[in-house]
Amino acid sequence: MEFTTFLWTTVAAFLTLAVFSFLYKDNPMYKFAEHLFVGVSAGYFVIILWHGALVPNLFKKLADGDWWYFVPGILGVMMFARFFKKSSWISRWPLAMYIGISTGLAIPLEMANRVNRQLWAMMEPINWSSFWGERYLDIGSGYSELFIFVGTVSALVYFFFSKAHTGAFGAVAKFGIWTLMLGFGASFGFTVMARISLFINRIQYLDINWGQTAFNAADTSNVNYHAGFQALFWAVWLIFLVYAVFEYKKYLSNKDKPSQAAGTSA
């Protein structure tokens, strides 16, 4: 690894630690990282949209003599009428076109791709010949397929609020909410594990990519290694140490002072 690459790795490590410092409290390093993220992400998407959508969909089409594409270009510029109070109503026209096309497109597509496909999958015949399956908790068994069918119908019944959830209807709705709770629990558990995986990944980055490279523990064959690696490593920790000392001194100076709220009430 070259020095410049390690410099960038150190920047990434500093930003990682800066975001994690929020666990202590909102602090200048976290605020810096947060605002940097907003700016860099916004800039990144500007470039991606320019090169990936605007150039091929508008500029190249116009360059090829497809003059119809002047219409969305003009409509797009009309959006900027929003900046002027008197003519801001003009921006409703392109917005109306955008909403009209996207909602019109959504109706058949949502019905076909979301509702119909799910209903279709739900109505697959149940595997009665192997109802109990061949192994422990067999997903392809008849009882699992029956559970999916009954669970989906009862969960839909639970969402039907035009009829009181009493009697047989209430019993089905109750099974529906049980199914939903099992599903929500599974999704929540899955999300928790995904976040934990991300956390492990960041710790591994700090350890392997940054810490071990700084001390050349993992890659002894690095011909570009020199003392600057360790200097950068300790410089980052020094920043956090200086901040910790600053915070501690602030805490000590405020410890004996009466709080502002108490002063006001007195």
């Binding site: 799910q118 908790l137 699992s144 999916i148 009954v150 969402f159 599903g183």
Partner: peptide, 19 residues
């Protein structure tokens, strides 16, 4: 099994509702 059976039933009902 939990992910592919009860979770699938719940998600399917939610997706139909969203659609």
């Amino acid at each position: 099994w939990v992910m592919n059976v009860p979770n699938l039933a719940a998600q399917r009902a939610i997706v139909i509702g969203i659609g």
